[in-house]
Simulated assay, not measured.
Amino acid sequence: MATKLLSVFNPRFGSKGQALHQALQNENFTPLSIPLLAIEVGVDKTCFYHAIRDSLARNLAPRLIVTSANTLSAFEQCDAAIKKQLINWPCFAIGKATQQALLAYGFKQVCCADSDTSEALLAKIKLGSTDQQTYWIIKGEGGRNTLLQGLKQLDHQVATFAVYKRCWLSISYQQAQAIAQQDAWLITSGEMLLHLQQELQNHGVSCRASTLIFVPSQRIVDIARQNQIENVINCQSALNSNMITVLKSLNKGFRGTN
């Protein structure tokens, strides 16, 4: 039986989904691109903008913790004069993909932990200065409060801004069948994995026992196992390049069906 190039489910949306689709094709994979979520404006986007202006007027520079590249639309509302000052603020990113997005925006100081989790970033912050600091957590609506609780326990001043909202999308029966037949899935969050699992169950569809699920952190591996989802591989990062590198390394020994 000849070695088969992997067919890969790509659930990312917008420009990120298009970039991943093209990157997979460039490496001779066969992508199936069906977005599982869309991003809308969060309740705190305008409040965040006014907080930035107020802090600049008072010569304050809080430490920013940015949980996702999806927050970048909130920064893009700043005009050139504000951005020129904002990019000098110290910034922490969850995940290398978020770090790269912030550096591309222009931030000069972007610290990132080795793992794409709140726990890893919190541990890195604990190793830094013990002086009381002011942190702003820039995030999506909902989600966990690990960073907020951890920073408060360290006696830091913390504010949170929910600048975007995840809107999970339904899939059709035909889409569910197509996704279930893919050799590999690229999943970037535990919430995404559980949403997909529920969508497949709603249609009475099960994925192939041989399907490989690639995720960016051990936390998502643990979530998968807790929900009886097998064949999960930790890529250590949500960067397209990292996930595709792991795909390529496993593809060398993969034998699919004809």
Results as ranks from 00 to 15, higher is better:
214 F>R: 02
192 M>F: 01
205 V>W: 10
206 S>F: 12
185 W>G: 00
182 Q>T: 15
213 I>K: 11
214 F>W: 08
196 L>K: 02
212 L>C: 10
188 T>N: 09
189 S>F: 07
202 N>P: 05
181 Q>N: 15
183 D>N: 15
206 S>M: 13
189 S>I: 05
191 E>A: 13
186 L>G: 08
189 S>D: 05
198 Q>E: 12
188 T>F: 08
205 V>A: 12
184 A>G: 11
210 S>D: 11
191 E>D: 11
182 Q>W: 01
185 W>M: 01
183 D>Q: 12
188 T>S: 14
189 S>M: 05
197 Q>H: 12
190 G>T: 08
207 C>L: 13
199 E>Y: 06
188 T>M: 09
203 H>Y: 08
186 L>V: 10
189 S>L: 06
182 Q>A: 14
195 H>N: 09
186 L>R: 06
202 N>M: 07
204 G>L: 03
182 Q>S: 14
201 Q>R: 15
215 V>A: 03
209 A>M: 07
198 Q>D: 13
204 G>S: 06
205 V>D: 06
190 G>D: 08
181 Q>E: 14
216 P>D: 05
183 D>R: 00
199 E>A: 14
192 M>L: 12
216 P>E: 02
198 Q>I: 07
187 I>R: 00
196 L>P: 07
184 A>S: 14
197 Q>N: 15
181 Q>K: 15
190 G>R: 12
215 V>E: 00
183 D>I: 00
193 L>S: 07
211 T>Q: 03
205 V>C: 13
201 Q>M: 13
187 I>N: 02
203 H>I: 10
195 H>L: 07
210 S>M: 06
209 A>N: 08
197 Q>P: 05
215 V>D: 01
199 E>H: 10
185 W>L: 06
192 M>N: 04
214 F>T: 01
197 Q>K: 14
184 A>P: 11
206 S>N: 15
182 Q>Y: 03
198 Q>H: 14
192 M>Q: 15
201 Q>G: 07
202 N>F: 13
